[in-house]
Each structure stands twice: as structure tokens, then as C-alpha cells.
Amino acid sequence: MRINLIGFGVIGKGFARALVRKRTWLREKYGFQPEVVSISDVTGTVVSEGGLDLEKTLSSVERTGRVIDCPGAEEMTGLEAIREVDADLVVEVTPTNVDTGEPGLSHMLTAMEAGKHVVTSNKGPLALEFKRLTETAKKNGVHLKFEASAGGAMPLINLANEILSGDEILSIKGILNGTTNYILTRMTKEGTGFESTLREAQELGIAETDPTYDISGSDTAAKLVILTNAIMGKNTTYRDVKIEGINRITPEAIALAKEDGYVIKLVGTVENGELEVAPKLVPMNHPLNVDGTLNVATFQTDLAGEITIVGTGAGAMETNSAILSDILSIFRNSRG
């Protein structure tokens, strides 16, 4: 299988590392021999029709931080690479944008129109144009898979749609953002204020320099939309979600909740067609009460009752567990 890799940041590099690490294992276990034929970032693209030497590309980009500095790299954009470099599948891991969905939206549409499968961790395009994307996939007879976009390593979409395919999923509730969960956990354990705890999380590299997207609830909302559409067959968008972030939570509120047997968590819920992201009082003995950067989601189903999954919602290797599983499922399906 030949792959165009679009985006070479945390997740893109993690993908290359995972392939290097598991090359032999993938071949022996599945007879799967993926070749990355192009890698693009904002600065340019490296191409090798026969498959790039991933270790060389990784060490070159680690030195200079730019794909364009790799030997033989061209000033070719990601979009051009998708159009011009022959491949079966595009791994789209550029930054999420929940206003326009770009550049990911154009990358995905172009890829599918060119008959290429798409595997992505990019939430923006899916949270805005889910229907258009899935219809484009269908029309062109290709697969679009995005397990990594909602819940990182937690296999939520595949669990609901494959393993629980005889159940109807009635509601989804989850903690889908590790940064906010970390901040609230620390505030609960240490009794500290929001601002100082956020700064601590930034120093540890858990929160971004601009943490708005996480703490405002936007990231959780984008993931909730993807889960709702993919699992419950709905056609919602990011704009349908009622969103409330965690920036007004006080240590006093957390202490009052604690005295009464509750913790405060940022929870995304979809129930009776309503999508909401808001801090909620969660009973301490409830399965959603997970600590630190962990994520969790509970499905209420008609036959199985409640099913809860806990796992890591982000991280280079964890997220690539989902990306690789999507690619392997396409590989198995397209071999017939």
C-alpha cells in the first residue's frame, strides 16, 4: 500500500516512527507492507516513488524542523502531492481548524476525488462537513476513516459500529479532552485556582501555549460531533453544540462538590438529539470519574446497557494506534 503523508508534526512524525518500529511485525502478522511515497508539511514535500527512507527523513526533519530541508525535497504543497504523487491512501494529519476546516477539508476531498482512501486524526473537517465528506467517499468508492479524531487511542467508533453493531447507541457521555481533565484533577487534589493550575499544565507541556481551544470546550465539542455523526448516524455540526468551558470553575466550587461526594468534570453529552459540552457534577463513584489526562466515554445502548471505555485521548504513539488500525482495516477490506 502506497501512502501520501500530509502533515509532519507530532502525529505525522509519530506515524513514521510507528511504521519504522513495526515494519517487520506488520509484514509477518498481516503481510502488510506500507510504503510512504510522499511527506508534506507547510514548507514542502519529499517524494520517493519507491518508498521513502523514513528514518532518514525523520532525522533530517528533527535537525531543521522543515521538510523542505530534506535532500531532494521540492516546493510542492500537500494538495499538489495528493494530486500528483501516485498512492492508494492519504494520511491527513494537519492542524485542526473548526472555523473553515482547512487545509484538511481540501486535502480530504481532493484525495477521495482522486480515488484515494483517507485516514485522519484531523477533527475540523469532520466536525463541519461530515455529510459532504462521507458522501464524497461513497461516491468515489473509497474509505474515509477517522477513529483517531475522537478519543485518540480509545476505539470508540469501531467499537460502536463494528463490535456493537447489533445495538442502538442511545446516548454518549464522555470526557474527551485530556488537558482540561488534567487541570480539573489538579484543582481537585491540590485545591489550587484555575489560572495557576493552567500555568502549571503549560509548563509541563500538557496544555498548549494558547490553551483556548481546549479550555473553552471547543475540542470536546468537535469530538462529540464526530462521535454523534459516526455512531448515531446523525448529521450534526460543530455549530449545533451548546458549549461551556472550564475557565470559571473556582476551587471553592470544587470543594463544595467534594463535600457532597461529587467531582467537577468537563463532559460532552449527546442525548435525545441534544449536544452539550459543559462542566458537570459527576458522582465520585461514577465510571466517568477518571483522573489526570485520561479520557473516558460511556455508551448507553439498547441491548448491552452501559459500556464504558477508558484510555489515552492524545499523544503521538497512542493516536497512531488508531490511525494504524484504520489503515489495516482498509488494507484487509480492499484485499477482498
Partner: peptide
Amino acid sequence: MALSMPNPQQETSAL
């Protein structure tokens, strides 16, 4: 109802 007021300038939390 339970109130917690850190000081008069700051916001109050109420359960």
C-alpha cells in the same frame, strides 16, 4: 444551600 466566599471581591460559589 451552601455558600463559599473566598473574599468580597472574588466570585462566590454556591451549592
